[in-house]
Simulated assay, not measured.
Amino acid sequence: MNEVLRLDRLEKGYNRGKANEIIVLRGASLVIPRGQVVALVAPSGAGKSTLLHIAGLLDTPDSGRVIVNGQDLTGAKDAARTVARREALGFVYQFHHLLPEFTALENIVLPQLANGTARKAAEARAQELLARVGLAARAGHRPSALSGGEQQRVAFCRALANRPALLLADEPTGNLDPTTSETVFSALMELVRATGLSALIATHNLELAARMDRVLRLSDGQLVEAK
């Protein structure tokens, strides 16, 4: 199976049937092959986060299909969706959401333990990932002792800890200054390329988007290739 993600004719609206009904997705479709990095661009409020939440099995469409690694999970039960999120998907948000009481290393170890990885192997994987983003020396620091850019790089490592097939990122550098954003984005792309990961990355930064394999625009509820 060469496809990591297929979204097929997604429809999504809020306040359905009411006077203030808002339609966010109108037949949105995409296919992401294995190893491809796709930028998702659109104005604020256009539905980028909604699309990512549906792709990440955190929300459900009103109609259409969500297929991850060849498995149609559109109508799957919560337990199956949870397993797929844990094993096949990695998430990065604008804010790092690291657990403040744990060190950088522990934040990366914990999702692996939840997935059944032995602690020694989980710690080795965490150390490997931190080294890849230049934070090996910061493994024992808690998030409060890290800079914003360092916190986000740890969040990237956590998202990749269980070796997902697909990374979903929602404005991963949107909370950083331009210089830090460049450093963090470069670290993310190095991680993605080194692991052969597929990724769907929402960003408002067109310069960063242009460095990915494809750029899709969310326009009037549909996905179109940017020219």
Score class of each variant (00 low, 15 high):
151 Q>G: 03
148 G>I: 12
99 L>G: 03
107 N>D: 01
110 L>N: 08
78 D>S: 14
172 P>G: 14
104 A>T: 12
86 R>I: 03
100 P>N: 05
123 E>D: 00
175 N>A: 15
79 A>F: 07
79 A>I: 07
82 T>V: 10
134 G>V: 03
151 Q>M: 15
128 E>I: 05
72 D>L: 11
101 E>Q: 15
52 L>F: 02
83 V>E: 15
92 V>Q: 06
79 A>M: 08
143 P>S: 12
78 D>F: 08
170 D>Y: 13
110 L>Y: 09
45 G>A: 00
173 T>A: 08
93 Y>K: 09
118 A>L: 14
49 S>Q: 07
61 P>T: 03
81 R>N: 04
131 A>F: 06
157 C>S: 09
157 C>A: 10
174 G>K: 03
160 L>T: 02
65 R>G: 09
124 A>N: 14
48 K>M: 00
59 D>W: 04
129 L>T: 03
88 A>D: 15
100 P>V: 06
98 L>A: 00
103 T>N: 08
92 V>E: 04
140 G>P: 09
121 A>C: 00
46 A>D: 02
54 I>P: 07
146 L>D: 10
168 L>R: 10
99 L>Y: 04
100 P>F: 04
74 T>R: 07
98 L>H: 00
53 H>L: 12
158 R>M: 09
155 A>G: 12
112 Q>M: 09
98 L>P: 00
127 Q>R: 14
144 S>Y: 15
119 R>K: 11
98 L>N: 01
55 A>R: 11
96 H>S: 15
93 Y>H: 15
91 F>E: 07
92 V>Y: 04
162 N>Y: 12
55 A>D: 03
128 E>W: 11
141 H>W: 06
177 D>N: 04
98 L>K: 00
96 H>Q: 13
47 G>M: 06
101 E>T: 15
60 T>W: 05
104 A>P: 03
91 F>M: 11
74 T>W: 02
155 A>R: 10
103 T>P: 11
61 P>L: 05
84 A>K: 08
157 C>G: 04
129 L>Y: 13
80 A>T: 11
47 G>A: 08
152 Q>M: 05
127 Q>G: 05
113 L>K: 01
147 S>W: 14
113 L>Q: 00
154 V>T: 06
162 N>L: 08
172 P>N: 13
177 D>A: 03
48 K>V: 01
65 R>N: 08
53 H>T: 15
173 T>F: 02
89 L>E: 09
130 L>D: 09
175 N>T: 09
91 F>A: 13
161 A>E: 05
58 L>C: 11
136 A>R: 05
171 E>K: 08
